[in-house]
Design a protein around this nucleic acid. Structure first.
Lengths: 224, 224
DNA sequence: CCGCATCCGCGTTGATACTG
DNA sequence: CAGTATCAACGCGGATGCGG
């Protein structure tokens, strides 16, 4: 029996045949923030059967989106990482992420939260115009996770882990505050004034950071 | 039991919850070329169960992507059309279409072909730079289908049916020729010289049309 | 314990028949 | 023509097992 395909000569149908199955694009999203071990991936995808993750990874490897690699000694652990094709795919999902972000329900407290999910959503709403002439790094600590955002004169990159260089701004905050600021319910200054958020760095860096990552809130306001 | 969701506070996860199920984005794609009746949609989606199409349409209507409308008399038939949200969604799938197009296998003869699928794939690869200063319409006749492409100084729109205004170029061709030109196996001039393709209009219009819609072939060459 | 494979129960999907 | 009804087959979620 043929794998469930669409069999249409159409770019979208082909993309959905390749990566349209359940969980597949979420795996690509998680790997777009840096290589990950099997167990870490599984931890990022609650509700996904372990065997299914193995199947998906094998398929993504077969179609050239994902590659296995071994970290150099003394780590010597196997990880999965995106190929160039995989990075192109991750890039191609940005507008879809942006559309979905405009349809998130911020008040739903039952949703699972991860700093890297929200920051990858911020990245999707990123407007290069807002970052021209800015080259610096912001580091976020949320719920025990560390993620840093590298802005480089019109470009923007979100990577898991602490920044290798000294960041212009370090934000220690809570999921609630991050969501509130992201969705426009709170200004960054409100958050800093409140109990959940504290920053290291000057106020100018905070203002620039807010301007550059603020597209998410603007999208939501536009779409309702 | 809860509908199969991801439950993650993440734009991509939300988008996939809303429109990530099988067939859903292909319905949006078909409606993005103009309103369609239930039966026409079903005809465009071979292999999809009729009941499933009804379910999907109801869901898309519930989330505000699709709207039912009745064509004015004397037609008086019910059609489905995209809302503004739906058009934004269709727009958001363009890069994904482009990624998938680069992974199409042009030699696979078993794939189903429709002129509007291929032309919507062309549109996804459209580069606005190529169309600055050009404002004209091209009409394609393929396999009994008629689709027209409206270029308007940096913008591009693909719509089913004949052009309401006199087109600068009319192309009558075969699926094979259109695929061959789209994937770069043939130049437009080769096609016109061959038996499958004939055009009405001057050679300059053909050259402009080829330049504007040629992004698909360029993408494929880049990705391999 | 990590990285996967195997099994089972159920929801989703594919194909066709049916109805107003 | 525009859907609804029915049922078999498949995909997925959850648990468990197994080798390193």
């Amino acid at each position: 029996v043929a794998k469930r395909t669409y069999g249409q000569f159409c770019g979208l149908a082909r993309a959905l045949e390749l990566v349209g199955e359940r969980w597949t694009l979420l795996i690509v999203r998680d790997l777009s923030l840096g290589p990950q071990r099997y167990g870490d991936l599984a931890g990022h995808l609650p509700g996904m059967a372990s065997g299914l993750l193995a199947t998906r990874l094998k398929h993504l490897e077969a179609i050239g989106v994902v590659r296995r690699a071994v970290l150099p000694p003394p780590a010597n652990v196997g990880v999965y990482e995106l190929t160039d094709e995989g990075r192109a795919l991750a890039e191609a999902t940005m507008p879809l992420t942006r559309w979905g972000a405009a349809h998130l329900e911020p008040e739903r407290g039952d949703l699972l939260f991860r700093a890297d999910w929200l920051l990858s959503t911020f990245r999707a709403a990123f407007d290069p115009e807002a970052a021209v002439g800015v080259s610096e790094t912001y580091e976020f600590h949320v719920d025990g996770e560390v993620v840093h955002v590298r802005v480089d004169d019109g470009g923007l990159d979100v990577v898991r882990g602490p920044s290798p260089v000294r960041p212009a701004l370090v934000v220690r905050t809570t999921p609630d505050d991050l969501v509130a600021v992201g969705t426009g319910r709170m200004t960054p200054d409100d958050a800093v004034a409140g109990p959940g958020t504290e920053i290291e760095g000057d106020a100018d860096a905070l203002a620039r950071c807010a301007r550059i990552l603020g597209g998410f809130a603007r999208d939501r306001a536009a779409a309702g």
